[in-house]
Nucleic acid binder design. Sequence first.
DNA 1: AAATATTACTAACACTTGTTAGTAATTTAT
DNA 2: ATAAATTACTAACAAGTGTTAGTAATATTT
Lengths: 196, 196
Amino acid sequence: MAKIQSKKNSTKKEVIIEKASKLFREKGFGAASMRDLAEDVGVEAASLYNHIQSKAEILQTICFKVANEFMTNLEQVESSSQSTLKKMEAIIRLHIRMMLDQYEYIYISDHEWRHLPEPYLSNFLSQRRSYRKRLGDIIEEGIAKGEMKHIDPYVAVLIILSAISGIDSWQRSRKSTSAEALETNMVKYLIEGLKK
Amino acid sequence: MAKIQSKKNSTKKEVIIEKASKLFREKGFGAASMRDLAEDVGVEAASLYNHIQSKAEILQTICFKVANEFMTNLEQVESSSQSTLKKMEAIIRLHIRMMLDQYEYIYISDHEWRHLPEPYLSNFLSQRRSYRKRLGDIIEEGIAKGEMKHIDPYVAVLIILSAISGIDSWQRSRKSTSAEALETNMVKYLIEGLKK
DNA sequence: AAATATTACTAACACTTGTTAGTAATTTAT
DNA sequence: ATAAATTACTAACAAGTGTTAGTAATATTT
């Protein structure tokens, strides 16, 4: 049956993935070894395979967990009845917050997806393409309704997502600017850039 | 004396670095092997060491080449007598263009610097910090002069650089949007977001 | 307490890694 | 053409890779 390990209410598999996410971010997926991971978990490398099937599976789990979370949120926003600007703001804020408190996961999903084995790689990229397309559709609608300025929707999506993804280089020097100030300023910049 | 190899007027070392930059981007520094690289160059792995000293040296060369290029340009812009908005526009345009026609180099400098060995790593990060600080100073001056809107300069720099860095995910699907349209739209978005 | 299922261990596998020695081939300088 | 320097080759190294078998220890269920 379900095994409850560790101090928190989390499976050992979850512990492994959590430790792995930190390790993969620090050293990169390729350079992080299963023996490194085992040491972090406090176990021998071979023992990991009682809980996971492969190193790649860890990466898959992380990448698709993140992708699904964003996709679910997008569907909620799409089916809501806010203005297109409010929709984009909601999405931007979610991205920023997830970047702030699920940093490791998001970072890996953003930067290490290249190492996904097929067919997961194609699947992931297709999901990402679809996600961006749907963000672009919201912006397109915003332009059509006169709520947003005339700009290439695809480029706008690129800018917004990349800008948020760049918070990773803030994480390492988080003295001067607080998290709240960061979110406020980013939303201001990114939304003002859309407004007509 | 100077050895002229290959078809073009380039040292074999330059050929190696050029091939390496493509390889490092595709597979990541850690996952790219010297044997992979050797095959691309058309030579045995051991022969590479007649021209380079180590795998890490290649990474160093690439990262600092890029860093120096940006730094030189920044100094020119700083000492010019344009408005702060024009200065930022000039910098943004340079970044976009370098991203477009020196894609491999910039990408590696952006994403693979983590694998630099000390003391190069510290050196690189310090240079990067300094670069961003000076960009922030331009924005701060822009705000003080009333040319730019009130925004945290550090966050603005973060957004601008990250947004441009995100062009890498455009490279792979460069059908719909042309390079000129991309630059125009990005400048529009990023500069409008600064203007008062 | 006994039986069962789960997890950790040691040892080893086949393979890949960056790099070095030593030497042959080739290019450049005399 | 001969000498000197440069570059490519083969072979090998020590170390590290993900992963599997087999087994001992531990926890869970009966």
